[in-house]
Design a binder for these strands. Structure first.
Lengths: 114, 114
DNA sequence: TTTGACCTTGCCATCGATGTCAGGCCCTAA
DNA sequence: TTAGGGCCTGACATCGATGGCAAGGTCAAA
């Protein structure tokens, strides 16, 4: 299928589909006229990418973990180093949450001192 | 005092002091030669700005609330709309925290399904 | 053949605190 | 007079997913 159809079927703009390809997340063959040509699996792949982006992963991390992903609501197969990567991401998220909560506490503290 | 001294005394780069001025957070008189000239109060103001930035406020919000701030560890005097602004910021932070925690939950969920 | 829908690449913009650099002025000590 | 340090403005870069535009190629239907 062409990029417009993939876009329609996934709800992801063609611009982004090209971006995901440039980031190494999504493969496309080329038709003789240069048009990108996607197979059915691409629909699933795009949904996986969106799910992982929605879970706060960057395209860089997704590029590393995508080969280990199955299913539309992603599950991870065992791949070397995958565990470490994802636990590192979890830890980074926890750190960001802690930062925000510290900030929130500081702001609330300013507010509560009359 | 000149910008270099204010920078040394606050630990904030001259570049940032100029930026805070451009954002309307920090006043400076000008010497006849065009150099910025700060008074003693500027040291306190810069520390307030840093404290509020550290609490996660943007320069835009700080510009609005700074006139209501007293002390090196900021306290807020009563100013009209101040309460609304800060509670809005608190709510925005809570929303960001919730987002992050949702993302974290999604990622952890992917991980826990073997 | 023309129209119109689709595709291509490449570039610019966003947001915001911050760094860095270039080109040039000011002032003081040697 | 020169060296050197401080100051000035203005501009560009950062990060990353995303939007948008322009110029141009492709193809099918009318």
């Amino acid at each position: 299928m062409l990029i417009g159809e993939l876009s329609r079927r996934t709800g992801v703009s063609a611009r982004l589909l090209r971006y995901y390809e440039a980031q190494g997340l999504l493969d496309a063959r080329r038709d003789p006229n240069g048009y990108r040509s996607y197979d059915e699996d691409s629909v699933v792949t795009v949904r996986q990418i969106r799910a992982l982006l929605g879970a706060g992963l960057s395209t860089e991390v997704i590029r590393e973990v995508l080969p280990c992903v199955r299913g539309e609501r992603p599950e991870f197969e065992w791949c070397a180093e995958l565990w470490d990567i994802l636990n590192g991401e979890l830890a980074a998220m926890d750190a960001r949450i802690d930062d925000l909560q510290r900030s929130r506490g500081a702001l609330a503290g300013f507010l509560s001192r009359p």
